[in-house]
Write a protein that binds this DNA or RNA. Structure first.
Length: 453
RNA sequence: GGCGGCGUGGCCGAAUGGUUAGGCAGAGGCCUGCAAAGCCUUGCAAAGCGGUUCGAUUCCGCUCGCCGCCUCCA
């Protein structure tokens, strides 16, 4: 198992799963009310890479990520559009999965919906009220955070300091501004559910507790999300579990933000680029490469120039993959370079250091090319196999074959003949014609190869 | 106000108390009919000021600049 930075202890720790060889992870998914942006793309890629890496290391991963389909923002947005909240949520959930597929993010093993867990949430609320850690007011049920041991653990602040900085609106009925809603009473004209606490809907923080514990059980291995979820969302999830005397996540993992200049990309700041725009304009793999080549906890700046940089780096990877596509198949007996794989694993094992992992991949690519130039085939193939294996582990799908129209192949054949007859004027003419059709022809020992112009 | 973090070469981005990160771009060369791809060589660095040390980009302090969380937020 890798070591990972744990938000609770604020240090890199050994990850010890509750069951050896297995790993259960829960990552907070989207509230489906609008277009996802680059930040959503980053966190899904980060956890996708973690999941793929663990599987590659032979760990049996169970990955749960929820869909928040009941929320104030959904209700507000739906009202603006004049459609039902359920309809809006359904629409944006479809958008979400479509984008995930384009990003190459593997679908979670389970994708629970908050609206399917209302009954379980109400059970938890009932339990918290009965044990006295939660109380009712005229507008809902609140958890009294002062009664929770270690409240502030994930925020790394004590209760008093959190309270002094609280910016939440004052509610006379709440015992503390930090107390948060478990159940919100609403008029029956609004979207909601009947309950012993009155008609209403659940507070945000309860759904993940119900779903994580309900699906993965107590003491599941890892809970993750963006850094902005550490407080108050995850803090409040943990608070509920602690209040009920239940074991919650063993480890907490939080990824850094996507930055725009010196600011966090956020809906509220209006400085976001939608994932759709990114995917429509750039090779989706470029964003994955960008995410993988910076550390997951560091801020990540994304600009057109930086994406272009990653895209060019990807061209090098694809050129390498094309060069080795056949070579690798011819040598099934050669194993991937252990040295490269060990270097990669070592980097990834220390808090998922994918930038260093990628450096090993690029070094392997250089060595493979170097060796093949000198006909050192075994050396070339073992490095190439390692690089290809590890790229796959990061979820980077190489384009090692190109579907080329028959017409282009015919021109390349003619060019080959012209070259053998030393008719270079004709050869160059054929090359131009191939270029007109959108392909670049490259010569090699094995004949010709193509790439997209 | 409280808490956490950051400032690395033209750009992106790691590790590290003394030796090449890696990628992208640049320069020179090899290969090629010419290219492309590839390979080789090569600039360019550590916000500032002090301190610890034989030696600091790396540790400590201060200054400056910046960011995040404490409200919804990935």
């Amino acid at each position: 198992m890798p070591r990972l930075f744990d938000t609770q202890s604020s240090e890199i720790v050994d990850i010890v799963p509750s069951t050896e060889g297995k790993f259960s992870m829960y990552v907070c998914g989207p509230t489906v009310y609008d277009e996802p942006h680059l930040g959503h793309g980053r966190f899904t890629l980060v956890y996708d890479i973690l999941r793929r890496y663990l599987k590659y290391r032979g760990v049996e991963v169970r990955f749960v990520s929820n869909i928040t389909d009941v929320d104030d923002k959904i209700i507000t947005r739906a009202a603006e559009l004049g459609i039902s909240a359920g309809e809006l949520a359904k629409r944006y959930e479809e958008v979400w999965w479509d984008l995930m597929e384009r990003l190459g993010v593997e679908k979670p093993d389970e994708t629970p919906h908050a609206t399917d867990w209302i009954a379980q949430m109400l059970e938890l609320v009932t339990e918290m009220v009965s044990t006295g850690v939660a109380y009712e007011t005229t507008d809902g049920v609140y958890l009294e955070v002062a009664k929770v041991d270690g409240y502030g653990l994930l925020a790394r602040q004590n209760l008093a300091d959190l309270r002094s900085g609280a910016r939440v609106e004052v509610d006379e009925q709440k015992k503390s501004p930090l107390d948060f809603a478990l159940w919100k009473r609403t008029p029956e004209t609004e979207w909601g559910w009947e309950s012993k606490f009155g008609f209403g809907r659940p507070g945000w923080h309860t759904e993940c507790v119900a779903m994580a514990l309900g699906i993965l059980g107590e003491g599941f291995d890892l809970h993750g999300g963006g850094m902005d979820l550490a407080f108050p969302h995850h803090e409040n999830e943990r608070a509920q579990a602690v209040a009920m005397g239940k074991n919650f996540a063993r480890h907490w993992m939080h990824n850094g933000f996507v930055m725009v200049g010196d600011e966090k990309m956020a809906k509220s700041l209006g400085n976001f680029t939608t994932l759709k725009d990114l995917l429509d304009s750039t090779d989706p793999r470029a964003y994955r490469l960008l995410v993988a080549r910076s550390h997951y906890r560091a801020p990540l700046e994304v600009t057109a120039e930086i994406l272009q940089d990653a895209a060019r780096s990807l061209e090098r990877i694809d050129a390498f993959a094309r060069r080795f596509a056949d070579v690798v198949l011819e040598r099934p007996e050669v194993a991937p370079s252990k040295e490269v794989i060990d270097g990669f694993n070592e980097a990834m094992d220390e808090d998922l250091n994918s930038p260093v992992g990628l450096a090993h991949v690029f070094e392997a690519i250089t060595r493979a090319n170097f060796a093949l130039d000198r006909a050192l085939n075994e050396e070339a193939v073992s490095n190439a196999k390692a690089a290809l294996l590890l790229l796959g582990t990061l979820g980077i799908v190489v384009q090692d074959r190109l579907e080329v129209p028959q017409e282009v192949i015919a021109l390349a054949e003619q060019r080959k003949v012209a070259r053998s007859e030393k008719d270079f004027a004709a050869a160059d003419k054929y090359r131009d014609e191939i270029l007109q059709l959108g392909y670049v022809v490259e010569d090699s020992d094995l004949g010709f190869r193509f790439r997209k112009a």
